[in-house]
């Protein structure tokens, strides 16, 4: 069962590379913001799987919850900041 979680965590980290392309290439700053949001919400899931691999899930659950909170606040703050700037 551990082997299964290892493969799922590895494939999830590969899936996380795809939004990175959008973060680099995104024509507008909001594409980059969306890429960061996508990577952040996938990191929350990846943290849970890593917690399972390390057999210390009760620690990693708190870490991933804190990460989800911070990701949400960062995205809201960044979007509040960017809508006043006319440059895209």
């Amino acid at each position: 069962m551990d082997r299964f979680f290892l493969y799922v965590a590895a494939s999830l980290s590969l899936v996380m590379v795809l939004p990175m392309y959008r973060v680099l290439k995104g024509p507008t700053v909001f594409d980059r913001l969306m890429g960061v949001n996508a990577v952040g919400s996938k990191t929350v899931v990846l943290l849970l799987l890593v917690g399972l691999l390390y057999k210390r899930l009760d620690m990693f659950v708190d870490i991933s919850l804190a990460y989800a909170l911070l990701n949400f606040i960062a995205v809201v703050a960044a979007s509040r900041f960017f809508y006043k700037r006319r440059r895209l």
């Binding site: 909001f30 509040r80 006319r86």
Partner: peptide, 15 residues
């Protein structure tokens, strides 16, 4: 909520 915030910012910025 985050998605709504991003799209709202994009519309106000004139995308």
């Amino acid at each position: 909520t985050a998605t709504h915030c991003i799209v709202d910012a994009a519309i106000r910025a004139g995308l």
